[in-house]
Simulated scan of single mutants.
Amino acid sequence: MTPRPMEVTIPDHLFAQLPFFDVVDTDDTVVVDLENRADLVNIRGALQGGLVATLIDVAGGRLAIKYTGEGAGASTADMTIHFLAPIMEGPARATATLVRAGKRTIVVAVDVTDVGGDRLAARATLSFAVLTPRQPAQPATAP
């Protein structure tokens, strides 16, 4: 699949300014790339670790939401990341796979590779809390 810019549905959201690209989006796998550009690297020339964490959260959250049910949501409850190697070439590619989908918690594994460097750069496990659907606001009643 040819990567395409990730759709951002919130107007003026920060994610619209970052070079996220959708690679795969199926029921059981989400793959998202983050291009490595000069304004996103640290003083050593590697993609900033916080942006790698954000990439992991985006890919994992997009997969988790598929298992929440109609109108429900998911919120990151826990994220453990093992940074294994710097992302020097890029893009950073996050591959999210489902570990377990329960009624209240969804667990996702995410591997991040430096595509240009052909190596595993990070491995993460995330837990998402399943959020119940929001109820529509009730009109105020007069006393």
Rank of each mutant, 00 (worst) to 15 (best):
P3W: 02
R4Y: 04
P5R: 15
P5H: 08
E7R: 14
I10P: 00
D12V: 05
H13R: 09
Q17H: 15
D22N: 10
D22G: 03
V23A: 10
V23W: 01
V23D: 04
D25F: 07
T26F: 00
D27Y: 04
D27A: 15
D28I: 10
D28L: 10
L34Q: 09
L34C: 07
N36L: 14
N36Q: 11
R37M: 09
D39A: 06
L40Y: 04
N42G: 06
I43K: 10
I43Q: 13
R44A: 12
R44I: 06
G45V: 07
A46G: 13
L47V: 08
Q48L: 14
Q48R: 14
G49I: 02
V52E: 04
V52W: 00
T54E: 03
L55A: 07
I56F: 00
I56C: 03
I56L: 05
A59F: 00
A59I: 04
G61D: 04
R62S: 05
L63F: 00
A64R: 08
I65R: 01
E70F: 03
E70Y: 06
G71P: 07
G71E: 10
G71F: 06
A72G: 05
D78W: 05
I81H: 05
I81E: 04
H82L: 03
F83E: 04
L84E: 08
A85T: 07
P86I: 09
I87W: 00
M88Q: 15
E89C: 06
E89P: 00
G90F: 01
G90M: 05
A94S: 11
A94R: 09
T95C: 12
A96K: 13
G102Q: 09
K103S: 15
T105C: 12
T105W: 02
A109E: 15
T113R: 11
T113Q: 08
T113I: 14
V115K: 12
R119Y: 09
A121T: 07
A122P: 13
A122E: 11
R123Y: 08
L126E: 13
A129G: 07
V130W: 00
V130Y: 00
L131F: 01
T132H: 11
R134V: 06
Q135W: 01
Q135T: 14
A140G: 11
T141K: 14
T141F: 04
A142V: 11
P143S: 13
